[in-house]
Simulated scan of single mutants.
Amino acid sequence: MLCRYLTHPQIIVDPALDVPRWHLSDVGKARVAALAGGEALRGTTRIISSGETKALETAQPLAEALGLAVEVRPAMHENDRSATGFLPPTEFEQVADRFFAAPEDSVRGWERAADAQARILAEVTTCLAQPCDGDVLFVGHGGVGTLLWCALAGKPISRAHDQGPGGGGNVFTFTWTPRAVLSAWQPMERLSA
């Protein structure tokens, strides 16, 4: 069984909405549609998604293309940043840097990175405890995805392992038994190459 963790692609940043309710942009939707129209996920038999709008808008077209239902796991949400809500991009990047650099601390009231990592790893563990006859696709977010990557790779929490700039839409591949990361983050389009 091959597992993949895919982050939602580009979004519409809307300060008037709670961040978990943000939607994919036209660019993000087009990237998802291209992936759904290809053969890259053909062996996927389960799609498991965060309950945030942008993740569901990524997972649903992929599931429909494969004739699958989306399994929604609300605890797969992005790190809880509700204490600050929307932050302008420069300020957000500074706080995110501190979030990864001090994983045992709550930065400006955000969920601690150590807690977010434990949460996403527990969700993946629970999901993969169920037998599966094919590949599994997890659809979520860059922050907790990076924390998951670090846990699976046996690396300390560090933003050095983040998906990088570009607005999301990246994927990494791993196996569960044995537990191993098979790839670094790569753009979702590379799955089709």
Rank of each mutant, 00 (worst) to 15 (best):
A153T: 00
H8C: 08
E91G: 00
D135W: 12
G145R: 13
A118I: 02
G38Q: 02
A83W: 02
Q94D: 03
E39F: 05
R119I: 11
Q186Y: 09
G109T: 10
C3R: 15
T44S: 06
V95H: 14
H141K: 11
R119H: 13
V107G: 01
L128W: 12
R179E: 12
W22N: 11
H8Y: 07
E93R: 14
G134H: 13
C127R: 06
G28F: 02
H161N: 14
E93G: 06
F99K: 03
A101E: 07
N170R: 14
F86H: 12
P156W: 10
F100H: 07
R81M: 10
G43M: 03
E78I: 01
D14Y: 01
A151K: 14
V13K: 05
T84A: 15
P20W: 10
A193D: 15
A118R: 14
P131G: 09
V171H: 01
C3D: 10
A118P: 09
V139G: 03
R46V: 05
M76N: 10
E78Q: 06
S82G: 13
A151H: 15
I11Y: 01
T126W: 12
T146M: 11
E189F: 06
A69F: 01
A69T: 06
Q94W: 01
I48M: 14
A180Y: 00
V107P: 04
G85E: 04
R81L: 07
F86V: 04
Y5D: 05
H23C: 08
A114I: 15
T53R: 07
G140M: 10
L41Y: 03
A118E: 11
R98Y: 00
P15W: 03
G38E: 06
E93Q: 14
L148S: 09
